[in-house]
Design a binder for these strands. Structure first.
Length: 457
DNA sequence: ATAGGGTTAG
Protein backbone atom coordinates (compact mmCIF):
# COMPACT_ATOMS: atom_id res chain seq x y z
CA UNK A 1 0.00 0.00 0.00
CA UNK A 2 2.77 2.36 0.99
CA UNK A 3 4.71 1.38 -2.07
CA UNK A 4 1.81 2.09 -4.39
CA UNK A 5 1.37 5.51 -2.90
CA UNK A 6 5.05 6.25 -3.36
CA UNK A 7 5.04 5.24 -6.97
CA UNK A 8 2.35 7.81 -7.40
CA UNK A 9 4.58 10.46 -5.87
CA UNK A 10 7.45 9.26 -7.99
CA UNK A 11 5.32 9.64 -11.09
CA UNK A 12 4.44 13.19 -10.18
CA UNK A 13 8.11 13.96 -9.82
CA UNK A 14 8.90 12.33 -13.18
CA UNK A 15 6.04 14.17 -14.84
CA UNK A 16 7.32 17.54 -13.73
CA UNK A 17 10.78 16.76 -15.10
CA UNK A 18 9.33 15.43 -18.36
CA UNK A 19 7.23 18.51 -18.80
CA UNK A 20 10.33 20.68 -19.18
CA UNK A 21 12.26 18.14 -21.24
CA UNK A 22 14.60 16.98 -18.46
CA UNK A 23 14.54 13.41 -19.67
CA UNK A 24 17.87 12.34 -18.24
CA UNK A 25 16.91 13.51 -14.80
CA UNK A 26 13.57 11.77 -15.13
CA UNK A 27 15.33 8.52 -16.02
CA UNK A 28 17.64 8.96 -13.04
CA UNK A 29 14.60 9.29 -10.80
CA UNK A 30 13.20 6.08 -12.27
CA UNK A 31 16.42 4.28 -11.41
CA UNK A 32 16.50 5.73 -7.90
CA UNK A 33 12.94 4.57 -7.45
CA UNK A 34 13.80 1.03 -8.51
CA UNK A 35 16.69 1.05 -6.03
CA UNK A 36 14.24 2.00 -3.32
CA UNK A 37 11.95 -0.79 -4.40
CA UNK A 38 9.44 1.37 -6.24
CA UNK A 39 8.63 -0.27 -9.52
CA UNK A 40 7.59 1.93 -12.43
CA UNK A 41 4.00 1.40 -13.50
CA UNK A 42 2.06 2.10 -16.66
CA UNK A 43 1.71 5.76 -15.73
CA UNK A 44 5.49 6.11 -15.37
CA UNK A 45 6.04 4.68 -18.82
CA UNK A 46 3.25 6.69 -20.41
CA UNK A 47 4.73 9.86 -19.00
CA UNK A 48 8.16 8.99 -20.35
CA UNK A 49 6.72 7.97 -23.69
CA UNK A 50 4.96 11.24 -24.33
CA UNK A 51 8.05 13.19 -23.30
CA UNK A 52 10.27 11.16 -25.62
CA UNK A 53 7.90 11.64 -28.51
CA UNK A 54 7.77 15.37 -27.85
CA UNK A 55 11.43 16.11 -27.19
CA UNK A 56 13.31 13.36 -29.01
CA UNK A 57 11.28 11.64 -31.66
CA UNK A 58 8.82 8.95 -32.37
CA UNK A 59 11.40 6.15 -32.44
CA UNK A 60 12.46 7.01 -28.92
CA UNK A 61 8.79 6.80 -27.96
CA UNK A 62 8.52 3.34 -29.54
CA UNK A 63 11.51 2.18 -27.54
CA UNK A 64 9.63 3.04 -24.34
CA UNK A 65 6.93 0.60 -25.41
CA UNK A 66 9.56 -2.11 -25.68
CA UNK A 67 10.93 -1.27 -22.26
CA UNK A 68 7.43 -1.47 -20.88
CA UNK A 69 6.81 -4.87 -22.34
CA UNK A 70 10.16 -6.11 -21.03
CA UNK A 71 9.18 -4.93 -17.58
CA UNK A 72 6.01 -6.96 -17.89
CA UNK A 73 3.71 -3.97 -18.05
CA UNK A 74 1.05 -3.90 -20.75
CA UNK A 75 0.45 -0.71 -22.66
CA UNK A 76 -2.96 0.81 -22.08
CA UNK A 77 -5.23 3.05 -24.11
CA UNK A 78 -3.23 6.13 -23.11
CA UNK A 79 -0.01 4.55 -24.35
CA UNK A 80 -1.55 3.92 -27.72
CA UNK A 81 -3.26 7.29 -27.89
CA UNK A 82 0.04 9.06 -27.29
CA UNK A 83 1.77 7.10 -29.99
CA UNK A 84 -1.05 7.47 -32.50
CA UNK A 85 -1.23 11.21 -31.91
CA UNK A 86 2.55 11.51 -32.26
CA UNK A 87 2.56 9.56 -35.51
CA UNK A 88 -0.32 11.58 -36.93
CA UNK A 89 1.37 14.83 -36.02
CA UNK A 90 4.46 13.74 -37.93
CA UNK A 91 2.41 12.61 -40.90
CA UNK A 92 3.37 8.97 -40.37
CA UNK A 93 -0.17 8.08 -41.24
CA UNK A 94 0.19 4.41 -42.04
CA UNK A 95 1.87 4.01 -38.67
CA UNK A 96 -1.09 5.66 -36.98
CA UNK A 97 -3.45 3.26 -38.68
CA UNK A 98 -1.26 0.28 -37.79
CA UNK A 99 -1.16 1.35 -34.17
CA UNK A 100 -4.91 1.69 -34.11
CA UNK A 101 -5.27 -1.83 -35.50
CA UNK A 102 -2.74 -3.15 -33.04
CA UNK A 103 -4.66 -1.56 -30.21
CA UNK A 104 -7.83 -3.31 -31.33
CA UNK A 105 -6.00 -6.64 -31.71
CA UNK A 106 -4.58 -6.31 -28.20
CA UNK A 107 -8.10 -5.98 -26.90
CA UNK A 108 -7.73 -2.41 -25.75
CA UNK A 109 -10.91 -0.44 -26.23
CA UNK A 110 -10.30 2.84 -28.03
CA UNK A 111 -11.72 5.91 -26.35
CA UNK A 112 -12.81 9.20 -27.85
CA UNK A 113 -9.19 10.40 -27.92
CA UNK A 114 -8.24 7.45 -30.08
CA UNK A 115 -11.09 8.19 -32.48
CA UNK A 116 -10.18 11.85 -32.58
CA UNK A 117 -6.68 10.93 -33.68
CA UNK A 118 -8.00 8.47 -36.22
CA UNK A 119 -10.22 11.17 -37.69
CA UNK A 120 -7.31 13.56 -37.83
CA UNK A 121 -5.28 10.91 -39.58
CA UNK A 122 -7.93 10.32 -42.26
CA UNK A 123 -8.20 14.04 -42.89
CA UNK A 124 -4.45 14.27 -43.32
CA UNK A 125 -4.60 11.36 -45.75
CA UNK A 126 -7.10 13.37 -47.77
CA UNK A 127 -9.92 10.96 -46.97
CA UNK A 128 -12.67 13.18 -45.59
CA UNK A 129 -15.31 10.50 -46.13
CA UNK A 130 -13.50 8.05 -43.90
CA UNK A 131 -12.96 10.77 -41.33
CA UNK A 132 -16.63 11.58 -41.45
CA UNK A 133 -17.45 7.89 -40.84
CA UNK A 134 -15.35 7.97 -37.70
CA UNK A 135 -17.13 11.15 -36.67
CA UNK A 136 -20.52 9.49 -37.18
CA UNK A 137 -19.31 6.52 -35.13
CA UNK A 138 -18.40 8.79 -32.25
CA UNK A 139 -21.76 10.53 -32.38
CA UNK A 140 -23.86 7.40 -32.83
CA UNK A 141 -22.11 5.24 -30.24
CA UNK A 142 -22.14 6.19 -26.63
CA UNK A 143 -18.73 7.83 -26.78
CA UNK A 144 -18.95 11.39 -25.61
CA UNK A 145 -17.41 13.68 -28.23
CA UNK A 146 -14.95 16.18 -26.83
CA UNK A 147 -14.53 19.73 -28.03
CA UNK A 148 -11.47 18.55 -29.99
CA UNK A 149 -13.68 16.11 -31.87
CA UNK A 150 -15.45 19.14 -33.31
CA UNK A 151 -12.32 21.19 -33.78
CA UNK A 152 -10.59 18.39 -35.66
CA UNK A 153 -13.69 17.90 -37.77
CA UNK A 154 -14.01 21.59 -38.66
CA UNK A 155 -10.32 21.88 -39.41
CA UNK A 156 -10.28 18.71 -41.49
CA UNK A 157 -13.25 19.84 -43.54
CA UNK A 158 -11.52 23.16 -44.25
CA UNK A 159 -8.27 21.50 -45.25
CA UNK A 160 -10.05 19.14 -47.61
CA UNK A 161 -11.87 21.87 -49.46
CA UNK A 162 -15.16 21.74 -47.60
CA UNK A 163 -15.08 25.14 -45.98
CA UNK A 164 -18.79 25.55 -46.56
CA UNK A 165 -19.58 22.35 -44.69
CA UNK A 166 -17.16 23.33 -41.96
CA UNK A 167 -19.01 26.58 -41.49
CA UNK A 168 -22.44 24.93 -41.44
CA UNK A 169 -21.24 22.32 -38.98
CA UNK A 170 -19.89 25.11 -36.81
CA UNK A 171 -23.21 26.98 -36.91
CA UNK A 172 -25.15 23.80 -36.21
CA UNK A 173 -22.98 22.93 -33.24
CA UNK A 174 -23.36 26.44 -31.88
CA UNK A 175 -27.13 26.06 -32.00
CA UNK A 176 -26.70 22.81 -30.09
CA UNK A 177 -24.84 24.64 -27.37
CA UNK A 178 -21.25 24.07 -28.43
CA UNK A 179 -19.12 26.92 -27.15
CA UNK A 180 -16.31 27.60 -29.61
CA UNK A 181 -12.81 27.89 -28.21
CA UNK A 182 -10.03 30.12 -29.41
CA UNK A 183 -8.69 27.21 -31.46
CA UNK A 184 -12.05 26.87 -33.18
CA UNK A 185 -11.98 30.53 -34.20
CA UNK A 186 -8.39 30.26 -35.39
CA UNK A 187 -9.21 27.17 -37.43
CA UNK A 188 -12.16 28.85 -39.13
CA UNK A 189 -10.42 32.15 -39.81
CA UNK A 190 -7.53 30.31 -41.39
CA UNK A 191 -9.73 27.99 -43.43
CA UNK A 192 -11.92 30.79 -44.71
CA UNK A 193 -8.95 32.98 -45.60
CA UNK A 194 -7.30 30.17 -47.51
CA UNK A 195 -10.41 29.57 -49.55
CA UNK A 196 -10.70 33.31 -50.11
CA UNK A 197 -13.93 33.77 -48.23
CA UNK A 198 -12.71 36.95 -46.66
CA UNK A 199 -16.06 38.33 -45.58
CA UNK A 200 -16.91 35.15 -43.74
CA UNK A 201 -13.47 35.22 -42.14
CA UNK A 202 -14.03 38.79 -40.98
CA UNK A 203 -17.33 37.78 -39.47
CA UNK A 204 -15.71 35.00 -37.46
CA UNK A 205 -12.96 37.36 -36.36
CA UNK A 206 -15.64 39.73 -35.10
CA UNK A 207 -17.37 36.88 -33.30
CA UNK A 208 -14.06 35.99 -31.70
CA UNK A 209 -13.80 39.53 -30.38
CA UNK A 210 -17.34 39.40 -29.04
CA UNK A 211 -16.85 35.98 -27.46
CA UNK A 212 -14.62 37.25 -24.72
CA UNK A 213 -11.68 35.18 -25.96
CA UNK A 214 -8.43 37.06 -26.38
CA UNK A 215 -6.72 36.54 -29.75
CA UNK A 216 -3.35 34.85 -29.38
CA UNK A 217 -0.18 34.91 -31.48
CA UNK A 218 -1.68 32.26 -33.72
CA UNK A 219 -4.72 34.43 -34.45
CA UNK A 220 -2.44 37.34 -35.30
CA UNK A 221 -0.19 35.27 -37.53
CA UNK A 222 -3.22 33.81 -39.27
CA UNK A 223 -4.75 37.22 -40.00
CA UNK A 224 -1.39 38.68 -41.01
CA UNK A 225 -0.80 35.84 -43.43
CA UNK A 226 -4.29 36.32 -44.76
CA UNK A 227 -3.45 39.92 -45.64
CA UNK A 228 -0.26 38.86 -47.40
CA UNK A 229 -2.11 36.22 -49.36
CA UNK A 230 -4.58 38.81 -50.63
CA UNK A 231 -1.69 41.15 -51.39
CA UNK A 232 -2.64 43.64 -48.69
CA UNK A 233 0.97 43.90 -47.60
CA UNK A 234 0.76 47.18 -45.72
CA UNK A 235 -2.14 45.93 -43.68
CA UNK A 236 -0.23 42.77 -42.87
CA UNK A 237 2.85 44.67 -41.73
CA UNK A 238 0.62 46.82 -39.55
CA UNK A 239 -0.64 43.70 -37.83
CA UNK A 240 2.94 42.68 -37.22
CA UNK A 241 3.60 46.04 -35.54
CA UNK A 242 0.44 45.73 -33.53
CA UNK A 243 1.57 42.33 -32.31
CA UNK A 244 4.82 43.86 -31.22
CA UNK A 245 3.23 46.82 -29.45
CA UNK A 246 0.79 44.57 -27.64
CA UNK A 247 3.65 42.52 -26.32
CA UNK A 248 3.01 39.23 -28.09
CA UNK A 249 6.03 36.96 -28.28
CA UNK A 250 7.15 36.18 -31.79
CA UNK A 251 7.87 32.64 -32.70
CA UNK A 252 9.24 31.09 -35.88
CA UNK A 253 5.78 31.15 -37.47
CA UNK A 254 5.21 34.86 -37.15
CA UNK A 255 8.81 35.72 -38.03
CA UNK A 256 8.77 33.59 -41.16
CA UNK A 257 5.47 34.99 -42.37
CA UNK A 258 6.68 38.56 -42.14
CA UNK A 259 10.20 37.93 -43.43
CA UNK A 260 8.84 36.12 -46.46
CA UNK A 261 6.40 38.93 -47.19
CA UNK A 262 9.11 41.59 -46.91
CA UNK A 263 11.36 39.52 -49.14
CA UNK A 264 8.65 39.08 -51.71
CA UNK A 265 7.93 42.81 -51.84
CA UNK A 266 11.61 43.64 -52.16
CA UNK A 267 11.91 45.33 -48.77
CA UNK A 268 15.16 43.57 -48.16
CA UNK A 269 16.61 45.85 -45.50
CA UNK A 270 13.60 45.41 -43.27
CA UNK A 271 13.62 41.71 -44.01
CA UNK A 272 17.27 41.45 -43.03
CA UNK A 273 16.58 43.39 -39.89
CA UNK A 274 13.79 41.11 -38.75
CA UNK A 275 15.71 38.04 -39.80
CA UNK A 276 18.52 39.14 -37.49
CA UNK A 277 16.02 39.65 -34.70
CA UNK A 278 14.90 36.09 -35.20
CA UNK A 279 18.49 34.81 -35.25
CA UNK A 280 19.26 36.71 -32.02
CA UNK A 281 16.21 35.29 -30.28
CA UNK A 282 16.38 31.92 -28.58
CA UNK A 283 14.11 30.32 -31.15
CA UNK A 284 15.41 27.04 -32.53
CA UNK A 285 15.35 27.41 -36.28
CA UNK A 286 13.62 24.57 -38.05
CA UNK A 287 13.76 23.77 -41.74
CA UNK A 288 10.99 26.23 -42.61
CA UNK A 289 12.83 29.06 -40.88
CA UNK A 290 16.03 28.11 -42.67
CA UNK A 291 14.21 28.08 -45.98
CA UNK A 292 12.85 31.56 -45.30
CA UNK A 293 16.30 32.90 -44.42
CA UNK A 294 17.81 31.16 -47.41
CA UNK A 295 15.32 32.73 -49.75
CA UNK A 296 16.24 36.11 -48.34
CA UNK A 297 19.96 35.41 -48.83
CA UNK A 298 19.26 34.47 -52.43
CA UNK A 299 17.34 37.69 -52.99
CA UNK A 300 20.28 39.55 -51.47
CA UNK A 301 22.47 37.83 -54.05
CA UNK A 302 24.49 36.10 -51.32
CA UNK A 303 24.98 32.68 -52.88
CA UNK A 304 28.03 32.01 -50.70
CA UNK A 305 26.03 32.57 -47.54
CA UNK A 306 23.32 30.35 -48.97
CA UNK A 307 25.71 27.43 -49.33
CA UNK A 308 26.97 28.03 -45.81
CA UNK A 309 23.40 27.83 -44.64
CA UNK A 310 23.09 24.41 -46.25
CA UNK A 311 25.99 23.19 -44.10
CA UNK A 312 24.40 24.74 -41.05
CA UNK A 313 21.15 22.90 -41.74
CA UNK A 314 23.05 19.63 -41.79
CA UNK A 315 25.03 20.47 -38.67
CA UNK A 316 21.77 20.98 -36.84
CA UNK A 317 20.59 17.57 -37.90
CA UNK A 318 17.84 18.97 -40.09
CA UNK A 319 16.91 17.67 -43.49
CA UNK A 320 16.58 19.86 -46.57
CA UNK A 321 13.15 19.57 -48.12
CA UNK A 322 11.51 20.38 -51.42
CA UNK A 323 11.42 24.09 -50.53
CA UNK A 324 15.11 24.26 -49.68
CA UNK A 325 16.16 22.86 -53.03
CA UNK A 326 13.63 24.90 -54.95
CA UNK A 327 14.80 28.10 -53.30
CA UNK A 328 18.41 27.26 -54.14
CA UNK A 329 17.51 26.46 -57.75
CA UNK A 330 15.63 29.71 -58.08
CA UNK A 331 18.53 31.56 -56.47
CA UNK A 332 20.93 30.07 -58.99
CA UNK A 333 18.63 31.08 -61.85
CA UNK A 334 18.24 34.61 -60.55
CA UNK A 335 22.02 34.86 -60.28
CA UNK A 336 22.24 33.85 -63.93
CA UNK A 337 23.72 30.42 -63.23
CA UNK A 338 21.14 28.39 -65.12
CA UNK A 339 23.60 25.56 -65.72
CA UNK A 340 24.03 25.19 -61.98
CA UNK A 341 20.28 25.27 -61.56
CA UNK A 342 19.81 22.54 -64.17
CA UNK A 343 22.41 20.40 -62.42
CA UNK A 344 20.73 20.87 -59.08
CA UNK A 345 17.34 20.08 -60.55
CA UNK A 346 18.76 16.77 -61.74
CA UNK A 347 20.06 16.13 -58.23
CA UNK A 348 16.68 16.90 -56.84
CA UNK A 349 15.04 14.37 -59.13
CA UNK A 350 17.68 11.81 -58.21
CA UNK A 351 17.00 12.42 -54.53
CA UNK A 352 13.48 11.24 -55.19
CA UNK A 353 11.40 14.30 -54.37
CA UNK A 354 7.93 13.61 -55.54
CA UNK A 355 7.35 17.08 -56.92
CA UNK A 356 9.88 19.24 -58.67
CA UNK A 357 7.25 21.30 -60.44
CA UNK A 358 8.08 24.64 -58.82
CA UNK A 359 11.79 24.07 -59.36
CA UNK A 360 11.16 23.26 -63.00
CA UNK A 361 9.11 26.41 -63.34
CA UNK A 362 12.00 28.41 -61.95
CA UNK A 363 14.40 26.85 -64.43
CA UNK A 364 12.02 27.46 -67.34
CA UNK A 365 11.86 31.09 -66.39
CA UNK A 366 15.61 31.21 -65.85
CA UNK A 367 16.32 29.73 -69.27
CA UNK A 368 14.07 32.32 -70.90
CA UNK A 369 15.68 35.17 -69.02
CA UNK A 370 19.14 34.25 -70.30
CA UNK A 371 17.77 33.99 -73.82
CA UNK A 372 17.62 30.21 -74.12
CA UNK A 373 14.00 30.18 -75.15
CA UNK A 374 14.27 27.06 -77.29
CA UNK A 375 15.78 25.09 -74.45
CA UNK A 376 12.87 26.28 -72.31
CA UNK A 377 10.37 25.18 -74.95
CA UNK A 378 11.96 21.74 -75.01
CA UNK A 379 11.84 21.44 -71.28
CA UNK A 380 8.25 22.64 -71.24
CA UNK A 381 7.30 19.94 -73.74
CA UNK A 382 8.95 17.26 -71.63
CA UNK A 383 7.07 18.15 -68.46
CA UNK A 384 4.33 15.73 -67.50
CA UNK A 385 2.81 18.05 -64.92
CA UNK A 386 2.39 21.74 -65.61
CA UNK A 387 0.54 24.43 -63.77
CA UNK A 388 -0.51 28.01 -64.40
CA UNK A 389 2.97 29.27 -63.50
CA UNK A 390 4.54 27.05 -66.13
CA UNK A 391 2.18 28.35 -68.76
CA UNK A 392 2.38 31.99 -67.82
CA UNK A 393 6.19 31.93 -67.84
CA UNK A 394 6.20 30.48 -71.32
CA UNK A 395 3.46 32.74 -72.60
CA UNK A 396 5.16 35.81 -71.20
CA UNK A 397 8.53 34.96 -72.64
CA UNK A 398 7.16 33.87 -76.01
CA UNK A 399 5.48 37.24 -76.26
CA UNK A 400 8.70 38.97 -75.40
CA UNK A 401 10.30 37.09 -78.28
CA UNK A 402 7.33 38.11 -80.48
CA UNK A 403 6.32 34.50 -81.02
CA UNK A 404 2.68 35.34 -80.51
CA UNK A 405 1.08 32.42 -82.31
CA UNK A 406 3.01 29.95 -80.21
CA UNK A 407 2.06 31.93 -77.12
CA UNK A 408 -1.57 31.85 -78.20
CA UNK A 409 -1.53 28.04 -78.49
CA UNK A 410 -0.15 27.65 -74.99
CA UNK A 411 -2.54 30.20 -73.57
CA UNK A 412 -5.46 28.18 -74.87
CA UNK A 413 -4.02 24.91 -73.65
CA UNK A 414 -3.73 26.49 -70.23
CA UNK A 415 -7.31 27.71 -70.15
CA UNK A 416 -8.61 24.41 -71.48
CA UNK A 417 -6.84 22.70 -68.61
CA UNK A 418 -8.97 24.82 -66.30
CA UNK A 419 -5.99 26.87 -65.12
CA UNK A 420 -5.98 30.58 -64.62
CA UNK A 421 -3.45 32.82 -66.28
CA UNK A 422 -2.55 36.41 -65.48
CA UNK A 423 -4.70 38.98 -67.21
CA UNK A 424 -1.55 40.80 -68.33
CA UNK A 425 -0.33 37.67 -70.15
CA UNK A 426 -3.61 37.31 -72.00
CA UNK A 427 -3.48 40.95 -72.99
CA UNK A 428 0.02 40.72 -74.40
CA UNK A 429 -0.87 37.74 -76.57
CA UNK A 430 -3.95 39.45 -78.03
CA UNK A 431 -2.20 42.77 -78.48
CA UNK A 432 0.80 41.01 -79.99
CA UNK A 433 -1.31 39.14 -82.51
CA UNK A 434 -3.08 42.36 -83.53
CA UNK A 435 0.12 44.31 -83.69
CA UNK A 436 1.79 41.78 -85.97
CA UNK A 437 -1.20 41.63 -88.33
CA UNK A 438 -2.97 38.50 -87.11
CA UNK A 439 -6.17 40.36 -86.33
CA UNK A 440 -8.55 37.53 -87.15
CA UNK A 441 -6.50 35.16 -85.02
CA UNK A 442 -6.69 37.64 -82.21
CA UNK A 443 -10.46 37.74 -82.54
CA UNK A 444 -10.70 33.96 -82.56
CA UNK A 445 -8.48 33.77 -79.50
CA UNK A 446 -10.67 36.24 -77.64
CA UNK A 447 -13.82 34.22 -78.24
CA UNK A 448 -12.05 31.00 -77.32
CA UNK A 449 -10.90 32.56 -74.07
CA UNK A 450 -14.48 33.53 -73.32
CA UNK A 451 -15.68 30.03 -74.09
CA UNK A 452 -13.03 28.42 -71.91
CA UNK A 453 -14.04 30.72 -69.07
CA UNK A 454 -17.69 29.73 -69.43
CA UNK A 455 -16.80 26.04 -69.49
CA UNK A 456 -14.79 26.41 -66.29
CA UNK A 457 -17.31 28.83 -64.74
C1' DA B 1 -2.64 12.64 -24.80
C1' DT B 2 -5.60 15.16 -29.46
C1' DA B 3 -7.00 20.17 -32.79
C1' DG B 4 -5.00 25.97 -35.02
C1' DG B 5 -0.61 29.94 -37.56
C1' DG B 6 5.06 30.19 -40.90
C1' DT B 7 8.86 28.72 -46.23
C1' DT B 8 9.42 28.28 -53.20
C1' DA B 9 8.13 30.01 -59.03
C1' DG B 10 4.92 33.62 -63.33
Amino acid sequence: MVCRFSTKLLNICIASLCKVGQLEKAEAVVIDGIRLGLLPDVVTYNTLLSAYSRFVGIDAAYSVIHRMKEAGISPDVITYNSLIAAATKRCLLSRSLDLFEEMLRTGIRPDVWSYNSLMHCFFKLGKPDEANRVFQDIILTNLLPSSSTFNIMINGLCNNGYTGYALSLYRYLQRQGFVPELVTYNILINGLCKSRKLNAARRILRELGESGNVPDAITYTTVMKCCFRSRQFEQGFEIFSEMKSKGYAFDAFSYCAVIAALTKTGRLEEANDIMEQMARSDIDLDIVSYNTVMNLYCRNGKLEATYKLLDEIEEHGLECDEYTHTILIDGLCKAGNVEGALRHLKNMTKMGFDSTLVAQNCVIDGLCKVGRLDHAIKMFASMEVKDSFTYSSMVHNLCKARRYRHASRLLLACLRGGMKILRANQRSVIDGLCYSGYTSEARRLKSKIRLAKILHY
